[in-house]
Amino acid sequence: MSPLPLGQQLLDTCAALLLLLSFAMLSQRRVVALVNLYALQGAVLAAATLLLAWRTGEDHLYVSAALTLVLKVALLPWLLHRLIRRLQVYRDTEPLLNVSGTMLVGLVIVVFAFSLAQPITRLASTATRSAIGIALAVVLLAFLMMITRRKAMSQVVGFLSMENGVLFGAMSASYGMPMVVELGIALDVLVAVLVLGVFFFQIRERFDSLDLHHLESLKEHE
């Protein structure tokens, strides 16, 4: 195996770190730590974007990196931390599937994602195409996290992490999306978190808990 250029190596490492953080989130029970992990994932994503911008010389990627940094490392985690403090939810209850089981399913998902990404990888011409599989895996793992958790708070973090995966995938497949789309997504995410914040307060007012399990009682009974 010929040694890859340094930038490529670092990008690969960033990709691996993203996946690692996804798994760390999957195994984390405490909500505060979850938000911190999310911030870290944002930071790694920003670093990867920056690296890619430096390697390809695409200017809009610098903007994208800055946006990621501001929004996902600073603003959103701050909002979420404030929400946690005000709602007093520090701990998720036992997840629906135990941690080892979840991780095992995660492992299968990774294999699946990689096999799925293989044809795309062959088509793409970018230098980062080997990371497409990882991006897909990050999206699916975030999905898995949303499925296995009970508390609304961790589901929001899962949702946000999923968006990270989408962004990273777009980046590695075609050096990022058009600027307008990217800005639009960023705005969407921000609004979504604000709306969900209001939503949480409403849920708690109604049920005295953020356990989504209570929402089951809303369905119509036969």
């Binding site: 691996a16 996946l19 690692l20 798994f23 195994s27 941690v99 080892s100 991780m103 095992l104 995660g106 492992l107 990774v110 294999v111 990689f114 990882i134």
Partner: peptide, 13 residues
């Protein structure tokens, strides 16, 4: 178990 799975994942990656 987490450690073991991380190691397996490392190999897969």
């Amino acid at each position: 178990g987490t450690a073991f799975l991380f190691a397996v994942l490392g190999l897969l990656v």
